[in-house]
Amino acid sequence: SRYQRVDEALPPNWEARIDSHGRIFYVDHVNRTTTWQRPTAPPAP
Rank of each mutant, 00 (worst) to 15 (best):
Y3H: 06
P11H: 03
N13T: 05
T40M: 12
W14E: 02
A41R: 10
V27F: 11
G22C: 00
P12W: 04
S20R: 10
E15V: 08
T33R: 11
E8R: 05
D28C: 01
T40K: 08
T34N: 07
P45C: 05
T34W: 04
Y26T: 00
Q37P: 01
D28S: 02
T35K: 01
V27L: 11
I18W: 07
R32W: 04
A16Q: 11
D7E: 10
Y3F: 15
S1C: 13
S1A: 14
Q37W: 06
R2H: 10
A41E: 08
H21E: 15
I24G: 02
L10W: 01
P42K: 09
V30G: 08
G22M: 01
R17K: 14
P12M: 09
L10T: 05
H29I: 10
V30K: 10
D7G: 06
D28L: 00
E15S: 07
T35A: 05
R17L: 08
W36F: 10
Q37C: 12
D28G: 00
P39S: 04
S20H: 12
T33F: 04
H29D: 04
Y3C: 12
I18S: 13
I18D: 06
R23C: 08
S20A: 13
E8K: 10
I18H: 15
A9V: 10
Y3L: 12
V6K: 15
D19T: 05
N13C: 08
P45A: 15
S20E: 14
T35H: 05
R32Y: 00
F25C: 04
V30M: 09
N13G: 12
D7Q: 10
Y3T: 12
P11M: 05
N13H: 06
G22W: 00
R38G: 02
P12H: 09
G22S: 04
A41M: 12
I18F: 15
R2N: 14
P43R: 08
T40V: 10
Y3V: 08
T35Y: 05
P11Y: 02
W14H: 00
I18M: 14
A9Y: 11
R17N: 06
F25V: 03
E8A: 13
N31V: 02
S20F: 14
T34F: 01
P11A: 04
H29T: 14
A16K: 07
R5M: 15
P12A: 10
R32A: 09
L10Y: 03
A41N: 12
E8T: 12
P11Q: 04
E15N: 01
